[in-house]
């Protein structure tokens, strides 16, 4: 997806395609599972009911109370590099699928984050304002960005854009 975001130095020759395919092997071995020690997992005693992913590399942990935590995946966090700033939405913001809910700045790049679901922002992870590096150290866990109260919980199962862990990991190795 991000072809050579990982390059940290300019190359004289540019075998970027090959470079990227080697680094992709690393991605495949990384886990895209929710960190069980994180605040997100412990939000409800029984843990989340479903975890979904998007092609834009966001994850979604849905709980029984029809709220969902949203963040970016390990793949996206590694591709972006050191995160230096996180722009968060505001509690009370109403969002539709695909709306911008914030952005992440890393190495002079501003990357938009999109909401994979419709609903209302009920909580934001304001720890990220002082500790943006949480996006790198625990992207699928304490690096969550916002909690959204779903306006249409039934849409989750019928959505074709929300991928299971297996589908998401397959999409990474296909590219």
């Amino acid at each position: 997806m991000f072809r050579t975001l990982l390059r940290t130095s300019p190359l004289v020759a540019r075998p970027s395609a090959r470079l990227f395919s080697t680094s992709r092997a690393v991605f495949n071995s990384t886990s895209h599972k929710l960190n069980k020690d994180s605040h997100v997992y412990k939000y409800l005693q029984e843990g989340p009911s479903t975890i979904k992913y998007t092609a834009e590399h966001e994850w979604l942990a849905i709980f029984k109370d029809d709220s969902a935590f949203v963040g970016i995946t390990t793949y996206a966090s590694e591709a972006l590099g050191d995160v230096t700033f996180v722009e968060l939405p505001e509690v009370g913001d109403k969002v539709e699928v695909g709306d911008t809910i914030g952005s992440v700045e890393s190495v002079k790049s501003a990357s938009e984050i999109y909401s994979p679901v419709a609903g209302e922002v009920v909580a934001i992870n304001d720890v990220l304002e002082s500790e943006p590096q949480l996006i790198n150290t625990d992207p699928i866990g304490n690096g969550w960005i916002a909690q959204i109260k779903l306006s249409d919980p039934a849409a989750i199962e019928s959505s074709e854009e929300l991928l299971s862990a297996e589908e998401y990991e397959n999409s990474l190795s296909e590219n």
Binding site: M1, F2, R3, T4, L5, R7, P10, L11, R14, S16, V107, S109, N175
Partner: peptide, 12 residues
């Protein structure tokens, strides 16, 4: 495209 994003390509 986002897929073709590369920090160095155009500078080079």
């Amino acid at each position: 495209t986002k897929a073709q994003f590369d920090r160095f390509q155009f500078a080079e």
